[in-house]
């Protein structure tokens, strides 16, 4: 296990699209362990994506059980070749990034998403995420497409969106 160095913007690798994983083997599992250890070593990080350590592979980890305040979460999610297959609602929320130190900004994301992926054993997994965890998933998947939250900042002055406009069926 090893903590890998985190690339910081303007490293050009952060703006590149990552390749799908073709084989899930011991080497990949070792990399996932290192990636996870790297996420845990960062200050307050609840997610990480492979391109943040310079590996242009479609691998991300999200673990919102570690958030500063308790949020609805699925614990540790290893997401290999992930796809978002369902979006619902919109919400403005604050984001920062291990690859963009000392800056946070407001970003509009879907309030709830379904993400489908393979885990590190090659098994298909699907998670229905909402709120903070849905935001983390979308942020990490953006990294796989060479996008940073900086690409999605919304204006401060006219940001009058309510933070949460998504409502569950039956909720008033």
């Amino acid at each position: 296990m090893a903590v890998l160095p985190i690339l910081t913007y303007p490293d050009p690798r952060l703006k590149q699209e990552s390749e799908p994983v073709s084989e899930i083997d011991d080497a990949l599992r070792a990399f996932v362990r290192d990636l996870e250890e790297t996420m845990h070593a960062g200050p307050g990080g609840v997610g990480i994506a492979a391109p943040q350590v310079g590996r242009l592979l479609r691998v991300a980890i999200v673990d919102c059980s570690r958030s500063r305040k308790p949020v609805s979460n699925h614990g540790r999610m290893v997401l290999i070749n992930p796809e978002i297959t369902r979006w619902e609602g919109v919400a403005v929320g604050r984001e920062g990034c291990l690859s963009v130190p000392d800056y946070t900004g407001n970003v509009i994301r879907a309030e709830a998403v379904r993400v489908e992926a393979l885990n590190e054993h090659g098994e298909p997994v699907a998670y229905d995420c909402e709120g903070f965890e849905a935001r983390a998933v979308q942020h990490e998947l953006d990294h796989l497409d060479g996008l940073l939250f900086l690409d999605r900042l919304v204006s401060r002055r006219h940001d009058l969106f309510r933070r949460k406009v998504h409502k569950k069926p039956g909720e008033r």
């Binding site: 960062g42 200050p43 307050g44 990080g45 609840v46 997610g47 990480i48 994506a49 999200v62 958030s67 500063r68 305040k69 949020v71 929320g93 604050r94 984001e95 920062g96 990034c97 291990l98 946070t104 903070f132 935001r135 983390a136 942020h139 990490e140 309510r162 933070r163 949460k164």
Partner: peptide, 11 residues
Amino acid sequence: ASLSPVEAMIG
């Protein structure tokens, strides 16, 4: 008057 918590998601 409304208040929304701001919890920065760092990822």
